[in-house]
């Protein structure tokens, strides 16, 4: 039996740990049904290489949030991130994705 996939959009957001609360609230206000948090991200950016794991400091290490939702919800989230990134470091990626159980994300 083949799996039926449904179109949906995905947003991936990388911010400092101290902005976790804001982004979670933003996603909730925009209507996203859930999200995944990946902690202690490392990588290269505008400001050089960012170290991932800071043992005694959750606030300064980078985190990544991933959510899938309908395009209008993703747009609301993105609208809230644009001003944030004017003052704070961070990036977001929006892409098309597919999910098997669409009702979980609406």
């Amino acid at each position: 039996m083949s799996v039926v996939f449904h179109d949906i959009q995905k947003i991936e957001i990388i911010v400092k740990g101290e902005k976790l609360d804001f982004v979670q609230n933003l996603m909730q206000q925009a209507g996203a049904q859930g999200h995944t948090v990946i902690r202690d991200i490392s990588g290269m950016g505008d400001h050089g290489f960012h170290e991932g794991r800071l043992l005694f400091n959750d606030q300064s290490s980078l985190i990544m949030l991933v959510a899938v939702a309908k395009p209008d919800v993703i747009e609301k989230i993105a609208a809230g991130l644009v001003p944030l990134f004017e003052k704070n470091s961070g990036v977001m990626f929006v892409s098309d994705a597919k999910v098997a159980r669409l009702e979980k994300f609406l």
Binding site: Q29, A30, K76, A78, A79, G80
Partner: peptide, 8 residues
Amino acid sequence: PDKTRLLA
């Protein structure tokens, strides 16, 4: 979207 912008 304007309201989420206001949140930021």
